[in-house]
Computed example of a mutant assay.
Amino acid sequence: MNADSHTIALLMADARLPSGGYAYSSGLEPALQGGLPPGEIGAFLRARARTTTIVDAATAVVALSAGRRGDAYGPIERAWAARTPSRAARNSSRELGRGLLRLATTLWPDSAPIAGLTRITGGWSRPVVLGAVAAHAGVDAESLVRIAVYDDMACAVAALLKLEPGDPIDGVRLVIDACAGVADFTPQLSALTSPEAIPASSAPQSEAWAEAHAVTNRRLFRA
């Protein structure tokens, strides 16, 4: 990556990015409301990293490949949706996607990879938009995998400080451990180029928690 690519990669992994991520907990609030003991949050994040997050990271990489080639993103979005059974989880990701796309189109209105996302109604998932931004910025596939995983874990831990207040240093440890748990998959995921190759790693309990959370009015976060 060149200097500009490194800068954009850092921005993409920054929780202060004005794309709406502060309103989400990466499934942690639904899990805690569903009965997850606080002492098992680390296990929850490690499991999420190997399931939901891996699907999103792979989707972003395939979208990156499509953006570089000028291919349509529709088949990638459909493949991601087929691997995300929870309607609530799909809706949340597309809300985040809209926020990220708004930011991207404002910053880079003439970008061909990003312009490819404006040709459909109904919204795009966050990983597809993330891949398109990476294609515009020249972010390499391995860096994109790490960004996608880190972003999901860091979002959860940022929410954790509001849901179960504690020492922020403990949250940093949770992020490091969860990211380390999927590091060995990075080369494999970064080599993906087709929607069919996106892994189908389901998390049925998390999906059930997400569905229950979507219909309650006692929550701090959207998801």
Rank of each mutant, 00 (worst) to 15 (best):
L144V: 06
A88E: 08
R218Y: 01
R90H: 07
V157F: 05
G74D: 15
R146W: 08
R87D: 10
G181I: 03
L45W: 05
A212C: 11
I76K: 09
T193D: 09
R126L: 14
A135V: 08
S19M: 11
G74Q: 14
L96K: 11
S93D: 12
G39I: 00
S92I: 02
R119C: 04
G35K: 09
A210V: 02
L192Y: 02
R126Q: 11
A66L: 01
V55K: 09
A208G: 02
R90I: 08
P165L: 05
L107I: 10
M153L: 15
R219F: 08
A191Q: 14
P38L: 07
L220W: 06
A82R: 15
P199M: 00
H6P: 01
M153P: 03
P18A: 13
A154E: 07
I54T: 15
S206Y: 07
S93K: 11
T186S: 06
F44R: 01
M1L: 11
F221H: 04
V55H: 06
T7C: 10
T59V: 10
V129F: 07
E211V: 06
E95C: 04
T53V: 10
A141F: 00
A148T: 00
G181F: 00
V55D: 09
A43S: 12
E164G: 00
P85K: 00
R90E: 15
D170Q: 09
L220R: 13
L28Q: 01
L130S: 06
A3Q: 03
S93P: 11
G123D: 13
Q188K: 12
V55Y: 01
A15K: 10
W209Q: 08
L117G: 09
T7M: 12
L11G: 02
W108C: 05
T59G: 12
E211Y: 07
A159F: 05
V129R: 08
D110N: 11
H136V: 07
P38I: 05
S93E: 11
H6Q: 12
V175W: 06
